[in-house]
Amino acid sequence: MFTLLQIELHKIYSRPRTYIAFAAITAIVLIFQFAFKYDGQSYMDLMLQNIQDNFEIDKSKAINGYFMCYIILNTLLIQVPILVALVAADTISGEANMGTLRLMLTKPVSRTQLLLVKFLASFIFTVCLLIWMAIVALFLSLLIFGQEDMLVFRVKGEESFILQITKDDIMWRYFAAFGYAAIALTVIVALGLLLSVFAENSIGPIVATVCIVLFFTIVSNMNIPVIDRNVKPYLFTSYLVGWKGFFYIGLDSSDQPIKGSIENWPAIKKSIYILLGHIGFFLSMAIISFRKKDILS
């Protein structure tokens, strides 16, 4: 099993397209850092609006490494699932396209084992992508913009407000958020793998995965009460942004943030279970379909 995993990882990392994801993330992050370094004040002006009429705020402190990483992760919400789909949706269909799938299955390895190994290899790729993202979006931002307290701009129902998290209470939240993101992106891995089982070439499952993610993400971000109540809870994309829950700091009775707290841990836990459920469902469906599949290529 471990040898199989090594082979699969070798396959993933020997393909130039794998590095597109790393290059794309680096480029997006760098362009954001450049933009905020030179004109971050405009963004702050937009977010702070008329608060500046009543308060003096050091905006240069507000744009710091932690805040930058939050903004970048917010923006990469759409791109990263696409990048993950590029690899995950290619795992089985890519082999079928090259005509190596049948050859692989002549080896003394069960179909379930093969699929699980491919899933695991894609998961490791996703984790590597997240680690790279943490390096460039978090650590590089901290190097460029420095450490300070972080402002989180939030809209909850009809209310808009700003949360301030002290700088000594942020890093663990990022570790937790990246951990959550790993689970969320694994759903995309499982979905890509499932669609990959049904195709004979890579384009179809990659495009299908991307389209599903994009469509569901758009619906998840619509603010229409009927969709909020009846559709959003059933879309896995509604839970992809659950990492933000770690930055919604708990408040005491006088609305002061409580250091080290999370406002709604049960909601995050529920989201994790839902995402794990999706992973289980997509992976099981992929295994069942793959075991029944007539391998002709």
């Binding site: 609006q49 608060i51 009429d53 917010n74 701009f153 809209v155 942004v241 709604n264 909601a267």
Partner: peptide
């Protein structure tokens, strides 16, 4: 004590995580 103005961000701009918690009544 001092007067403050209303603060309202457009919905959707912050891509918030809807944790389903109860919302306070609109001010």
């Amino acid at each position: 004590s001092f007067n403050t103005k209303d603060y309202k961000l457009p919905k959707g701009i912050t891509f918030d995580f809807d944790d389903g918690s109860t919302q306070k009544s609109a001010a």
